[in-house]
Amino acid sequence: MTPRDASDDSRWSDLGRPPLNGTALRRALVRDGGLWNDVQIVASTGSTNSDLAARALAGRAAEGAVLIAEEQTAARGRLDRRWSAPARSGLFFSVLLEPAVPVARWGWLPLLTGVAVATGLSRAAGVDTALKWPNDLLVTVDGQERKAGGILAERAGDNAVVVGVGINVTLRADELPVPGAGSLALAGAAGTDRDPLLRAVLRALEQWYGRWVEADGDPAASGLQETYAAGCATLGRTVRAELPGGRELVGEAVAVDGDGRLVLATENGVQEPVGAGDIVHLRPV
């Protein structure tokens, strides 16, 4: 955690962005027999994923730990891409999971989290969301799809995974990090109070994770594969996958297979799956 400098209070003085209520969140989320057992909030840190992974490796965190930051100064996306947002303008958190399912199925965790985030935000914010394979949350702003959130899953030792989520909630147009970004507020969300949004997302994540683990990580038996496909904006579109080494693959995204890979139907009639770890960029044609 980075201590807050009193000389930098301007970052924290926006009355439209009140702090999260840690006591209320713990009371709502931590319960006997539930997944979440430890909910902590820090004012500012580099990366909640890095912090929570370090705690797990040191034996100071177990499955069900949730670490939330009001501000992240060194947040990371996929392939170590940087991501930033003003303090208290979004939801920036990580959870620690120890899935008792075959490791080969752990690749579904980012997709599962995407389904949970979309489900929770739909209920609590009243805004339509879509998922861009493999790890982006999309909202519609002025008739255009914009990225309003992302998900990053990382191993933390042999038995654990840290899943980080970043969601732009109240970012204004002049605060967007790139032109293609968006936020729930810009998408016309009915509510932008971060406390109920976070509760809804974490409850949905607990439900989907429980179903998936109960099905031994089987995406079909748990309903995850079908639900993800129904909310995935990538499917049905012609896309260009930029692969390592400068290779490109163009085709229609026709399915997400049992391993969580995107299946592209190329112009020569071949269906070729691509994994999230193989993609540098995925762009519409």
Results as ranks from 00 to 15, higher is better:
L152Y: 15
L152I: 11
L152F: 09
L152W: 12
A153P: 10
A153C: 15
E154P: 13
E154Y: 09
E154M: 06
E154Q: 14
E154L: 04
R155T: 13
R155S: 15
R155K: 13
R155L: 14
R155M: 12
R155E: 05
A156K: 12
A156Q: 10
A156G: 11
A156F: 11
G157E: 03
G157D: 03
G157A: 06
G157H: 07
G157V: 02
G157T: 04
G157Q: 04
G157Y: 03
D158T: 12
D158A: 15
D158C: 09
D158G: 11
D158M: 10
D158H: 13
N159D: 14
N159Y: 07
N159M: 10
N159K: 14
A160L: 09
A160N: 12
A160C: 13
A160S: 15
V161K: 10
V161E: 06
V161W: 14
V161Y: 13
V161A: 05
V161S: 12
V161G: 12
V162M: 08
V162R: 12
V162E: 13
V162F: 12
V162K: 13
V162D: 11
V163I: 15
V163P: 15
V163C: 13
G164F: 04
G164K: 02
G164A: 07
G164D: 02
V165C: 12
V165A: 03
V165L: 10
V165F: 06
V165W: 06
V165D: 04
V165H: 12
G166V: 01
G166L: 01
G166F: 03
I167R: 02
I167W: 01
N168D: 00
N168L: 02
N168S: 02
N168F: 00
V169A: 08
V169I: 08
V169D: 02
V169P: 04
V169C: 01
T170S: 14
T170N: 07
T170C: 10
T170P: 00
L171E: 01
R172V: 00
R172P: 00
R172K: 14
A173C: 05
A173H: 09
A173G: 09
D174A: 14
D174F: 08
E175T: 05
E175A: 15
E175M: 14
E175S: 07
L176F: 01
L176G: 05
L176D: 00
P177Q: 07
P177T: 02
P177D: 00
V178I: 11
V178C: 07
V178F: 08
P179R: 03
P179I: 03
P179E: 08
P179Q: 12
P179D: 08
P179G: 08
P179N: 08
P179S: 10
P179T: 04
G180M: 01
G180I: 00
G180E: 05
A181F: 09
A181C: 05
A181N: 07
A181M: 03
G182D: 04
G182N: 05
